[in-house]
Design a protein around this nucleic acid. Structure first.
Length: 834
RNA sequence: GCGAAAGUGGCGGAAUUGGUAUACGCGCUGGCUUUAGGUGCCAGUGGGGAAACCCGUGAGAGUUCGAGUCUCUCCUUUCGCACCA
């Protein structure tokens, strides 16, 4: 072993060792408890950033720790390889997206290997490989047959100059990011997945996800947005079709004085045909809606359509308004307005001089002043005909029953969640496995013709999708009638690929099925680690997809991820590290300068995983300094005695050593080390790795201060035994965090173990080492610390109290006062109240 | 507006069930080592005070023998959702 810490060499040796022995290859073993540890796979953007390093270090520390606890660990890695940046790079650099992506993967894979993450590379996958996405296409055709996918016309952002569809993030202030042309809304047919069919299950199961942060569960609950209410039908005179609205407050129905519809509502568009003023207003609303920034400040405006709606209970006529705050995408795109009991309706009514009719009064009889604002609380119905006197629940049911009998409405749930639009008018993605036949309609590609392979040799110019210019791709024959037909040239949303990769890892890269049966051993994922930015979309889609796989008989459990850890952001100078802010730090430079262990140690020590991490160059060099101290510590003669140099001698020496023969000094050292081990074990279990590192640093501090033993004899055998045992513990405790240096130091410090540290266990504190003969107690007078006293372990309260009272400083504070009470907390403190 | 989390030295952060506030590290100060150095080691480092001691975890109150921790009110910051009918 070198005298000087040389991380580059040590790390290469450790990594070579793991690779030669396939240390991280995971095999199903029904006799062993499994642990599936997964970090969110990266988009191969080019180079790892600090966020990746932090994410993957957290995952790796957990995986290595679980392995030391005896679990059979699976930790895979792969590439979320489809996506827009590859197309952008292709346009800028004239490189096909596939080539760009594969080059990035190669570079980033090397970076991950240099960081020493314990991945089972045999299970590596890239979502752009046909062997992967073919199963996504296969599942889609199954779902098509089940009716869980459907096609409908939906709006997209369209750039008329580039003739291309833009993603939301490519629309900047309503203009195309490339050519600055004003973006239009265009309605085109797109595929949707019926996630709403699983809305109730996805919502209800959140209660059982106790291993997830409450914040994420709340965000998903809000996103699904289930609300219980009543659908109410307002008659429209001459029309057969009533105007439908959804309300969560049917108890206020008798206070409806107008109804309001969204600008995109068919009724609004119909009325606008005969009303140029209304038409202009609707166009204005739609223009405003595209510039998202203005949304929140938007003035609430409306316009009377001139139409009248008939109240389903009273039969009264109420005006129909178009209002810019009514959302077409929520509920029925129309609302019944009750100005007396809804603040927004109240303001609108004031602005347009509409009547305000109170129909609910506070249950306690408190007065209501409707000239100042709406009364929005729940109470008792008043002036409400047959419903007068009812409370909210009674009125809710009675009105629902009344409407149902009259066929003018019904109770129902409403959801904020929409079905998942999965069509993307882009090239670099999974081709949608559908053939459009003029005679037969949309026909799924038959199993034997899968996968529909995406051509990789293409040139992109940013105008439209190259697939549309490739007849050899899109010209085909109908699988049903064999007539000429057109293949879909749209591709899937890339969230499709990331919704099931965890299951694919578990089943291996099988060409026989989407998820091989071996996956049942590994699933669900025991620990998922990733960024909070995926709290809703990715994690909700994955939960949905998992249920699709379950209902297809491919997986057995209901949820994909048992425990979720969302790591904090990496900050520099108080704000998030990002390319756009130009405050990034390239981890590769740090690895080159200090080695992987220093980078891993810094990211683990600077803050606990869930909190944000403040970048600090000094912190990195501090981490490196610690590793050098650790290295130097194992260069002390104790670990290189001729008598101890091989494991067998070490085992004999330690095995025959009787810890009861330690002198007081060494007994204290050993007690400290085992106390720190206990602390570290507690903290590593709760994933608070910064204090695990702190415990390791304290161990180094304790051991560094001990005098070196230049030879072994009867007098110093206790000191040597303590040092050797302590070093064994220290290296094990640090090994999940800084595995390379620990691998290298292990042969020098291990007690009688021939195997490498990767195959050893987490140490257990020796209970007898923690027992103290003399206990130091804090003595307080009136809750303020005044002294410390030492008493023999097991002293009774009287003895402790006596010792405390005898302390001179304590006596000064209680001298002329009456002692009212004495509280003794065993092994901790005495509080004398005067 | 709604929801969530968080406010502790110069900085990152610790304090497990209420029980020595500021562990560990960074930075800073002084010293040592024939130290070329940006290396290494040792000591000190919340504020006030000569000291005894007093003050101190965003502000204020409360519970308690004892509160960073529990309760209430308020302030600030960050994040998420946001015209949701």
């Amino acid at each position: 072993m070198s005298k000087i810490y040389q991380p580059a060499e040590a790390e290469a040796r450790a990594q070579q060792y793991w690779e030669d022995r396939n240390s991280f290859r995971a095999k199903e073993d029904a006799g062993r408890e499994k642990f599936y540890c997964l970090s969110m796979f990266p988009y191969p953007s080019g180079r790892l950033h600090m966020g990746h390093v932090r994410n993957y270090t957290i995952g790796d520390v957990i995986a290595r720790y679980q392995r030391m606890k005896g679990k059979n660990v699976l930790q895979p890695m792969g590439w979320d390889a489809f996506g827009l940046p590859a197309e952008n790079a292709a346009i800028q650099n004239q490189v096909p997206p596939a080539k760009w992506t594969y080059e990035n993967i190669r570079y980033m894979r090397d970076q991950l290997k240099r960081l020493g993450f314990g991945y089972d590379w045999d299970r590596e996958l890239a979502t752009c490989h046909p062997e992967y996405y073919r199963w996504e296409q296969w599942l889609f055709t199954r779902l098509f047959k089940k009716g869980l996918v459907y096609k409908k016309v939906a709006p997209v952002n369209w750039c008329p100059k580039d003739c291309t569809v833009l993603a939301n993030e490519q629309v900047v202030d309503g203009r195309c990011w490339r050519c600055d042309t004003v973006v239009e809304r265009k309605e085109i047919p797109q595929w949707f997945m019926k996630i709403t069919a699983y809305a109730d299950e996805l919502l209800d199961a959140l209660d059982g996800l106790t291993g997830w942060p409450e914040q994420v569960r709340t965000m998903q609950r809000n996103w699904i947005g289930r609300s219980k209410g009543v659908e109410v039908h307002f008659g429209l005179g001459n029309s057969e079709q009533p105007l439908r609205v959804f309300t969560t407050r049917p108890d206020t129905i008798m206070g409806v004085t107008y109804v309001a519809v969204a600008p995109e509502h068919p009724l609004a568009e119909q009325a606008a045909q005969k009303n140029p003023g209304l038409s202009a207003f609707i166009q204005e609303c739609q223009r405003m809606a595209t510039s998202e920034a203005a949304m929140e400040l938007l003035e609430k405006k409306g316009m009377d359509t001139g139409l009248k709606a008939i109240h389903p209970v009273s039969g009264a006529e109420v005006p129909v308004y178009v209002a810019n705050f009514v959302l077409m995408a929520y509920g029925e795109g129309a609302v019944m307005a009750v100005p007396a009991h809804d603040q927004r309706d109240w303001e609108f009514a004031h602005k347009y001089g509409l009547p305000i009719t109170q129909v609910v009064a506070p249950a306690d009889g408190a007065p209501v002043n409707l000239s100042e604002g709406a009364f929005t609380g729940k109470g008792v119905c008043v002036e409400s005909g047959p419903f007068t006197g009812m409370d909210f629940d009674q009125a809710f049911d009675a009105i629902a029953v009344y409407l149902e009998q009259d066929n003018k409405g019904c109770k129902r749930m409403n959801y904020r969640l929409r079905d998942w639009g999965v069509s993307r008018q882009r090239y670099w993605g999974t081709p949608i496995p559908i053939i459009n036949c003029p005679n037969c309609g949309a026909i799924p590609v038959p199993d034997e013709d899968l996968p529909v392979v995406l051509p990789e040799k293409v040139a992109l110019d940013g105008v439209g999708s190259p697939l549309q210019r490739m007849p050899e791709f899109h010209e085909t024959r109908c699988p049903s009638c064999d007539g000429p037909a057109e293949r879909e040239t749209d591709t899937f949303d890339t969230f499709m690929e990331s919704s099931w990769y965890y299951a694919r890892y578990a089943g291996g890269n099988s060409d026989r099925s989407m998820v091989e049966t071996g996956a049942q051993y590994w699933l669900p994922v025991d620990q998922y680690v990733g960024g909070i930015e995926h709290a809703i979309l990715h994690l909700l889609y994955a939960r949905f997809y998992h249920r699709l796989l379950r209902d297809e008989g491919l997986v057995e459990c209901d949820e994909p991820f048992t425990n979720l850890l969302t790591q904090g952001m990496v900050l520099k100078d108080g704000s998030k590290m990002s390319k756009s802010k130009g405050n990034t730090v390239d981890p590769q430079q740090l690895i080159d300068q200090y080695g992987a262990d220093t980078v891993r140690l810094f990211t683990m020590f600077a803050s606990p995983p869930k909190q944000s991490l403040e970048w600090s160059a000094e912190g990195v060099s501090g981490a490196h300094r610690f590793l050098k101290r650790l290295w130097n510590l194992s260069n002390r003669p104790e670990y290189g005695f001729p008598e101890l140099i091989d494991c067998e001698s070490r085992r004999r020496f330690l095995g025959s050593f009787d810890w009861r023969h330690l002198n007081d000094d060494m007994r204290k050292v050993r007690s400290e080390i085992h106390g720190l081990l206990k602390q570290a074990s507690y903290d590593v279990d709760r994933y608070q790795f910064n204090t695990v590192v702190a415990a390791g640093m304290k161990m180094v501090n304790v051991l560094s201060q001990l005098p070196s033993q230049e030879s072994l004899n009867d007098e110093n055998s206790g000191a040597v035994a303590t040092l050797v045992e302590s070093m064994d513990i220290l290296v094990r405790v640090l090994s999940p965090i800084v595995p390379h240096i620990c691998h290298e130091l292990w042969p020098a410090v291990a007690i009688g173990i021939e195997e490498a540290i990767i195959d050893t266990t987490w140490p257990e504190p020796d209970a007898t080492a923690l027992v103290q003969d003399v206990i130091e107690l804090v003595v307080q007078v009136n809750g303020k610390m005044r002294a410390k006293v030492s008493v023999a372990a097991g002293s009774n309260n009287e003895a402790i109290e006596l010792a405390a009272r005898q302390d001179p400083n304590v006596q000064r504070h209680i001298a002329d006062k009456e002692v009212k009470k004495v509280i003794v907390v065993p092994d901790k403190l005495v509080n004398i109240v005067v």
